[in-house]
Design a protein around this nucleic acid. Sequence first.
DNA 1: AGAATGCGTTAGTGACGGCTAACGTATTAA
DNA 2: TTAATACGTTAGCCGTCACTAACGCATTCT
Lengths: 109, 109
Amino acid sequence: MLDPLEVAAEPNRRRLLQMLAAGERTVTELAGEFTVSRSAVSQHLLLLEQVGLVAARKDGRNRFYRLDNAGMRELRMLFEQFWTTELDMLLADAQNFTTDRLPTTEESS
Amino acid sequence: MLDPLEVAAEPNRRRLLQMLAAGERTVTELAGEFTVSRSAVSQHLLLLEQVGLVAARKDGRNRFYRLDNAGMRELRMLFEQFWTTELDMLLADAQNFTTDRLPTTEESS
DNA sequence: AGAATGCGTTAGTGACGGCTAACGTATTAA
DNA sequence: TTAATACGTTAGCCGTCACTAACGCATTCT
């Protein structure tokens, strides 16, 4: 599994990335907010690190994880690449039959 | 696997969704552009259908798949929900310091 | 009609993902 | 220093995923 987008898509990992957006955290801190074990969380983090979405710093007996900006930018890019303007137009057309509307790629970035 | 974002993230399925953005296609037409078998493609499509990202119409002995607009809109929503403004600001700030990259654990120890 | 062909799905298998439990290692306490 | 404790990772298991091969069913040809 070496595709950042696929790695980031897993729900627990999605949540980990969001939590790390607030700043660096240790494995145990992060695991505290999950129902699954420290071990599970650790493994998710290792995978995220492997695809370059997070990085870690060791301090004492703690390992502080943080987001990797370059990796996260690449993730964003991969999504934009997937979500072609074609898709935007398609859904924009469909909105004529509905009331709700989502922001387009350009607007949100 | 009932999470649309996770389902859509798989590379082959990502590509299928993109191809379907151009209009409806049969399984064999789609499979023609893949190295994997018709069967594999069919199963990916069934999964996409299951989470509401595509829908199908039967005509003769063909099954025409197309994007499901509601499902695709939900997919977009899930991503926006993940990609909080916090993340946007984080990466925007990082631009100022440009391509800086913090050393990984392995490098620093 | 019956045979042949084309289309899509199910059956079955190998491999991988995600999890808990056990472990090693580092730090703190006595 | 030795024992105890805390942190993170590896070992091993179970379930699910992604794939090919075999199948069923329509349609077309003769």
